[in-house]
Nucleic acid binder design. Structure first.
Length: 147
RNA sequence: AGACUCCCCCGGGCAAUCGCGCGGUAUCAAGCCGAAAGGUCUUACCGUGAGGAAAGUCCGGGCUUCCGGGGAAAGGAUAACGGAUAACGUCCGCCGGUGGCGACACCCGGGAAAGUGCAACAGAAAUAAACAGCCGAACGGCGCGGUUCUCCGCGUAUCGUGGUGAUGGUGGAAAGGUGCGGUAAGAGCGCACCCAUUCGUAUGGCAACAUACGUCUGCUGUAAACCCUAUCCGAAGCAACACCUUUGCGGUUCACCCCCGUAGAUGGCGGUUCUGCCGUCAUCGCCGCAAUGGUGGCACAUGAAUGGAGAAAUUCAUCGUGGAGUCCUGCAGUAAUGCAGGAUAGAGAUAGAUGAUUGCCCUCGACAGAACCCGGCUUACAGGGGGAGUCUGUUU
RNA sequence: GGAGAAUUACUCAAGUGGUGAAGAGGCGCCCCUGCUAAGGGUGUAGGUCGGGUAACCGGCGCGAGAGUUCAAAUCUCUCAUUCUCCG
């Protein structure tokens, strides 16, 4: 499974500001419906909708080695989650590592992400704006505009 | 056996399943994004995939650009001596100094007698003599006495000239040290021994230098203060820079340390000292700037054979090249290293590739992630292995 | 990735080889007021360790550690942290 990475800083800023948020011990998950999802779908040869994923691991976490390792673990956890329980597509997803992620295993990340997905209602077949993730009024508008 | 010293090497391993970057082949291929250049999606297989420090960015070099070349000035770097190297502030050897019983370790280790500056506080005084003190009647003065013609004697150190140099609680540093002589008092003033130092000679060494003898001198410290001497250095850095794409703008004989060189051509108009020169405008060429996005820089190349559907792969070859790369052997050298022969090769990302799960083993795993490439230095580091050597103890 | 700059009390900071490291804000105490604020006065060992009943005295302290010097916040070297610029 390939993921498109988020490269532009403004998309990160937008996701932090307007996206839905779920906090766990090891990781914080932000989700925002992607404006460019339709465009990307056209570009995709299989005409699939893809989520764009971004990882944030700050310098506070540690040196280059530990940060690199945290990124790998996050990636592995997310990959396993996505293969086992397919997510909704067409979203910007940003995963922010917390201090506890340094000592975590990928299974811990998997468990936390699973909880976060459940809370945000991101899994396939769930009602989209979940009651718990009340989000600011803005994300509510998005489904209408994108479709 | 114990305690040490130096040098070198390693930096968890194996298996199964899932997963990631890059290269290749097949497949998807029509597509999609974009103004263009260009980019990109699927799956399978094969190959390949972080360090000794990849780090700090402290030195040196390659590479690239800054119109080019030469010179000057300024500025910077280095510092015993000899060698190694592409180069270095690195390395090796050696000399001197310091530490250690020793193997060894450490040292920004030129010049203070070219000049300038600085040395707080304390101290009489900080490189220079003065002050206090000590010395004494040689001279002048003063006093007393004698004698009488400008003299003599004695006294006076609380009058001046004078002699003297280390005595003066200090201080980091006070002008060699000790002893004897010497003197009015004293002082290398003289002598003996010792210390340091200049120059010369001899011996050893390529040399720094060492030893011996003679000779001169007795000089504060600071150059990680300015400086002097010798040697070296243009500056900026891959976010450099090159090319492509689309668009806009400017320059075209100018060069602000000096000298030399430099892309103009054609036509119109005007001026003029008219085969020409000057000014101005246009076109083409040339040069440059800004913006947009992209590629390269950036990870060997070419040929042949085997192989197979075709590739990868394997083998072989090479002015070159990555890469002044690494390893082995031989020779030269005390060594760093060099020469010759042979072998080995293979990361290349761009939110940035090595992970997860399970099992087994051991010494139970530290510091830590390439970002243009090399040579060093410095700093961080669990533990393990190998080699050489020193000291102490015991036994023979 | 590359190029630079800075670090001195709780905060802002001066000091660039020499006694005892300026100054301001803050903080403590006093005055003023019925009570506050504002204002005025005065003090703050500038941290820490040791000694002393106390007043006070001594040692080390200018991000950390070495070095040069008689003497270092200041000069040199090696680290650490923070900030700025280059696309």
């Amino acid at each position: 499974m390939k993921y498109r990475a988020i490269g532009e800083n403004h998309l990160y800023q937008k996701t932090y500001a307007r996206g839905m948020k779920a906090v766990t011990k090891t990781v914080v998950m932000y989700c925002l419906r992607d404006y460019a999802a339709a465009k990307l779908q056209k570009a995709h040869p299989q005409n699939k909708r893809v989520n764009r994923v971004g990882l944030t691991v700050t310098k506070k976490i540690g040196g280059a080695v530990t940060r690199s390792r945290v990124k790998r673990i996050l990636r592995e956890g997310f990959r396993r989650l996505d293969t086992e329980t397919p997510l909704k597509t067409g979203f910007l997803i940003v995963l922010v590592a917390r201090d506890a992620a340094v000592d975590a295993k990928s299974t811990d990340i998997y468990a936390d992400l699973k909880y976060a997905v459940k809370k945000l209602g991101m899994a396939e077949g769930m009602p989209f704006p979940p009651k718990e993730a009340q989000g600011k009024p803005k994300p509510k508008k998005k489904p209408a505009s994108t479709t």
